[in-house]
Amino acid sequence: MNKINDFCIDFCQKHHVDPEELEEVFAFGRNSHDADVLSDLVNRGIKTATTSVYDLDGAMPVVGKYAIVLNGKNEPVCVIQNKTVEIMPFKNVSAEHAYLEGEGDRSYEYWRKVHEKFFAQECEEDLDTTFTENTEVVCETFEKVD
């Protein structure tokens, strides 16, 4: 945790950001391999969007807030800042948003296949619900800051 705390302090001092503006510390995906691959895409500026299942009980991302992205070893990789946040049914996510997620061949077909599987597992295991095309998701775009 000291690496994360030091990273946070350094970032806040370097960018004159109040630590309260750091919304969260997280890793993308459900395992360390996914976290490594996705954090690398973010760090290289390829991944500039993400989608998650909307959880009424969870915290909503906020435009303008910062987050520390971790790799598969729970080490800080970079900081991102939320630019847009939208809630919509899964079936309404655009091909443009899928492309911005930067994964695979960046096609809508690839994105949809991977995310349907991911969200079905998440809904079943974590949210005790069933994933459908009408399940609401949170679509975020972000920018790598540091």
Rank of each mutant, 00 (worst) to 15 (best):
G72N: 10
T135E: 05
D146Q: 00
V138W: 01
V77S: 00
H15A: 02
F28D: 00
A95V: 05
T130F: 10
C139T: 10
V25M: 04
I46P: 05
T48W: 01
D126C: 15
D18C: 11
K3S: 07
E124A: 14
F26G: 07
G29D: 07
V17C: 10
K91I: 13
V93I: 14
H115R: 04
N82Q: 13
R106Q: 13
Y99T: 10
D126I: 13
S94D: 08
A49Q: 01
H97P: 06
I87S: 15
E86W: 14
I87R: 15
M1K: 13
E143W: 07
Q81C: 07
F119T: 09
G72Y: 03
C139G: 04
Q121H: 13
V53I: 15
E143D: 12
T51A: 13
V114N: 07
E109Y: 13
Y99I: 08
S107L: 09
S39K: 06
V69Q: 05
D57P: 01
G58T: 03
F142G: 01
A27C: 12
E24N: 11
A67N: 10
K113Q: 15
T129I: 14
E20A: 10
D6W: 00
D10E: 08
N31F: 12
K144E: 02
R30L: 15
H15D: 01
A98E: 09
A59R: 08
H16Q: 11
V145D: 01
C78I: 04
C123L: 10
V137L: 12
E21Q: 14
A98Y: 08
E116I: 14
A120F: 06
Y54T: 07
E125C: 07
D105S: 10
V138G: 02
Y66N: 02
F11C: 03
V145W: 00
D10C: 05
V137A: 06
D36M: 12
F28V: 08
K73W: 01
D128L: 11
K47M: 04
V79E: 02
V77Q: 02
K65G: 05
H15V: 02
A98V: 12
D10P: 02
S52V: 05
L38C: 11
H33E: 15
D34A: 14
W111A: 05
E24M: 08
V93F: 01
K83H: 11
F28M: 07
D18P: 09
L38A: 10
S32G: 05
G102P: 05
N31P: 04
F131M: 09
E103D: 08
L38P: 01
Y66L: 01
R30M: 15
I68G: 00
I4C: 06
V53E: 03
N82G: 05
V85N: 08
E20I: 03
A98G: 12
D40Y: 14
I80L: 02
V37M: 15
P19R: 06
E140I: 05
L127R: 08
N134G: 11
L127N: 03
A98D: 08
H33V: 15
E133L: 14
E96S: 14
K73H: 10
A95Y: 08
M1E: 12
E136G: 00
V69E: 02
G102Q: 11
N5M: 09
I87H: 10
T141H: 09
F11L: 04
L22T: 04
Q121Y: 09
Y54G: 06
M60H: 13
E21Y: 07
V62I: 12
S39A: 14
